[in-house]
Amino acid sequence: MKASPIIVAIDGPVLGSCQGLVKIMTDLGDEVVGFKVGIPFIIQCGLESLAAARSRIRNGLLIADLKLADIGDIMVRVVSLVKDYVDAVIAHSFVGYKGALDKVSEKLKEWNIKLILVASMSHEGSRELYDRNLDSIMDVVKKANPWGVVAPATRPDIISLVRNALGADVKILAPGVGTQGARPGDAICAGADYEIIGRSITESPDPKKAVELIALEQEEALMRCRR
């Protein structure tokens, strides 16, 4: 069975324990494309839980959502702490290329880890800086040559602009589906490859069923937008 174009956001302990989160990742490993593990999980649950998740996810991506935003040497040092457990890391693009993302990009290639850059975010405040400077952000992204970018499901017009700027080769990961208001499938219709979904799945009494229902909504949305 093909995995649904969903990346589950794992941002902190649920079900009363870190083990509960690892169980969600284990149970959904074949149902979704992958998991985006946030800083709250890494700090609260430790690298042992990250290692446990890595050992139990057979096919899916494991992304460290570190939101890196520093000079290159520091960002590389941060990634070095998790590089044995993850397939990709997320960094901010506003820090620029020279002396920052250039060093990260080079080191991640050496470690065979995918770079994902934030092109815009799903909250309203992202309009104030990211969206107003999207052309400059795209210039930085093109220089860094990432595997993927983050663009908001809450603003499909931004996804379309990012897709047009970067072409088909760069993956677009779209957060903001569910709790933040975007509907499943709308981001994919606008040009995203994957939708990032957190609380609608992780806080559900039946995460696997939640994924099934969201996947069905995605399929229905795609049927509407492709007519």
Results as ranks from 00 to 15, higher is better:
P152M: 00
P152C: 02
P152V: 03
T154A: 08
R155N: 13
P156Y: 06
P156D: 08
D157W: 10
I158F: 06
I158W: 01
I159H: 04
I159G: 06
I159Q: 03
S160Q: 14
S160D: 12
L161M: 14
L161V: 11
N164V: 01
N164A: 13
N164R: 15
N164F: 06
N164E: 15
A165N: 14
A165M: 12
A165H: 12
L166C: 10
L166S: 11
G167W: 12
G167T: 14
G167E: 13
D169F: 11
I172R: 05
I172V: 12
I172N: 08
L173C: 09
L173D: 07
L173W: 06
A174T: 04
A174P: 02
A174K: 00
P175K: 04
P175W: 05
P175L: 06
P175V: 07
P175A: 11
V177W: 05
V177T: 12
T179S: 14
T179P: 03
Q180M: 09
Q180L: 11
G181Y: 11
G181E: 13
G181W: 08
A182M: 07
A182W: 07
R183M: 13
P184D: 08
P184K: 03
G185H: 04
G185K: 02
G185C: 04
D186R: 04
D186K: 05
D186M: 06
D186H: 06
A187M: 02
A187R: 00
A187G: 07
I188R: 02
A190F: 10
A190S: 13
G191D: 08
G191C: 09
G191N: 08
A192C: 04
A192T: 02
A192K: 01
D193N: 15
D193I: 10
Y194H: 11
E195H: 00
E195N: 01
